[in-house]
Simulated assay, not measured.
Amino acid sequence: MAKEVADLTTIDLFVDEKRPGRPKTNPYSREVQVKINKRNQVKRDKSKGLKRVEFKLHHEVFAQLDTLAKDKGVSRSELIESLIIEALAKD
Rank of each mutant, 00 (worst) to 15 (best):
H59R: 10
V42S: 02
F55R: 15
H59C: 07
K70F: 08
K72C: 04
H58Y: 14
T67W: 09
A89T: 09
E54I: 15
T67V: 02
V61Y: 11
V53P: 06
A63F: 02
V74K: 03
R44E: 00
V42H: 01
K51W: 00
K56D: 15
K56L: 15
L83W: 10
K51H: 03
I85C: 10
L50R: 02
E78F: 08
A89H: 02
G49R: 06
L68N: 05
K38E: 08
E86T: 12
Q41W: 07
A69P: 01
I85G: 07
T67G: 11
D71Q: 12
L50N: 04
E81C: 12
K48F: 06
R44V: 00
K43E: 00
H59Q: 11
Q41N: 04
N40F: 00
N40R: 01
R76V: 04
A87L: 12
A63L: 07
K48P: 00
K51N: 01
E54C: 14
S82H: 08
Q41D: 02
E54G: 13
D66T: 09
A69N: 06
A89L: 09
L79C: 10
V53Y: 14
K56N: 15
R44K: 07
L65E: 07
F55H: 08
A89G: 06
Q41V: 03
R39A: 08
K51Y: 04
D66G: 07
K72L: 15
T67Q: 14
K46V: 03
A63C: 01
S77R: 10
L65I: 15
E60H: 12
A63I: 02
A89N: 10
E86D: 14
A69H: 04
I84K: 08
L57I: 09
L68C: 11
V74C: 08
D45F: 00
E60M: 13
N40M: 04
L65S: 09
L88F: 09
R44Y: 01
S82T: 13
A87Y: 04
L79N: 01
R39E: 02
L68Y: 05
K51F: 01
K46E: 02
K43Q: 05
H58D: 15
L65Y: 07
R76I: 06
E60R: 14
V61A: 14
I84R: 06
E81Y: 05
K72F: 07
V61M: 13
R39F: 01
S75V: 08
A69L: 12
E78Q: 13
V61F: 04
I84T: 10
D71L: 11
V61L: 14
V61N: 12
A87P: 00
A63G: 02
K48W: 04
L79D: 02
E54H: 11
K51L: 09
K70W: 04
